Amino acid sequence: MKLISISKQGRNVLGVVTENGVIDVELALTLEAGRANTEVPSEVMTVIEGGEAALGALHGFIGSLPATGSEAYMTSENDIEWGPCVTAPNKIICVGLNYRKHAEETNAPIPAYPILFNKFNNTLTAHLKDIAVPKVTEKLDYEAELVIVIGKKTKYVAKEDALNHVFGYCAVNDLSARDLQLRTQQWLLGKSCDDFSPLGPYLVTADEVGNPNDLWIKSIVNGEVRQNSNTSDMIFPCDEIVSYVSQHMTLVPGDVILTGTPEGVVLGLPEDQQVYLKPGDEVTIEIEKLGKLTNRFVADLS
């Protein structure tokens, strides 16, 4: 199933992407009340937290909707105001230097253990939202990344069972202010400016994605492909990441793990070729099966 968040006057409501368009679940529940039980979720976090029961109720409700008359609660993706596909994660955990070729391009040693850092909810934004380039950086970089979305309470999970604890996957642009990131040994400052984690456009359930470590991943800047790789180049694959993190902290439904970026970022270029993001640029992150996440960058007028 392919889920989205639809932003409505400051609220994020659940949308389900179908071949015929996007079903606004909240509106459909109102108009087709007789077809739904009280367990049908109308917000993406409720689906994630409700697990298989919530997904089953949602599947059943979507399947019960009539073939005719759906125009009342069906809309085109072109008419949506998008919200982050995961709206309220308890934790935003990131893995640094997790692609071999990216480590090589930045002259960094291959890590022996996953390098973990965190972001905060202020970094969340959505597909097609403008992102202001912070006044405090001159080196804003893009990073195409696969995101793991946790679906079950997870502690001390074995690698062999780890992916059974995953609800689904989405794309993110893990934006990085390199001058701030490298100012100290701690990366947090350069990773946590406002809107530095656009998520989306879709949250795709794990059953539709299959093997997360065999997906093409790209970033496209102003129409030019900059990153073009496959998640198979990860140093620590998705199952190992989930297992490793769970040994140290309890993961809960809705937690997101950003799994690192492949080669092709600005930082990896020779210094005389480095051209960082500026107002007017547009970046698209494209991951196989997960869609295209696009944002335009604007001047910070605050």
Rank of each mutant, 00 (worst) to 15 (best):
G56W: 03
E240L: 02
K129F: 09
L251Y: 08
L269E: 14
G69W: 00
E39M: 07
A126T: 10
E224R: 04
V209K: 00
E32V: 06
V209T: 01
I150G: 10
N20Q: 12
N230F: 11
T259I: 00
K135Y: 12
V95G: 03
M74K: 07
L251V: 02
L199Y: 14
G96P: 02
F196I: 07
Y142A: 13
L258R: 14
S197A: 15
V86Y: 15
S232Y: 12
S64G: 01
D24G: 02
F236Q: 04
D233Q: 15
K152S: 01
N122R: 13
V149I: 09
D214L: 10
R178M: 00
R178H: 03
E286R: 11
P198L: 02
M1L: 09
T30I: 15
K119G: 04
I150N: 06
G50P: 08
G200Y: 05
T261H: 09
V166Q: 09
C170Q: 07
N164Y: 15
G60P: 03
N12C: 07
A28C: 03
N121C: 13
N90Q: 14
V209I: 12
Y113L: 06
E160P: 00
K2M: 12
G264K: 15
L290R: 02
L188S: 08
A158M: 14
L251T: 00
N37G: 15
Y169D: 12
T38W: 09
G268N: 05
H102W: 01
I287Q: 06
E263V: 13
E288Q: 14
A158V: 03
T75F: 11
S76V: 03
G260D: 04
E160I: 07
L290A: 08
P89S: 04
L188G: 10
L124P: 00
V86N: 08
V256N: 06
V225C: 04
V157M: 06
N20M: 15
I148W: 02
L3P: 04
L277M: 13
T87W: 10
K2T: 11
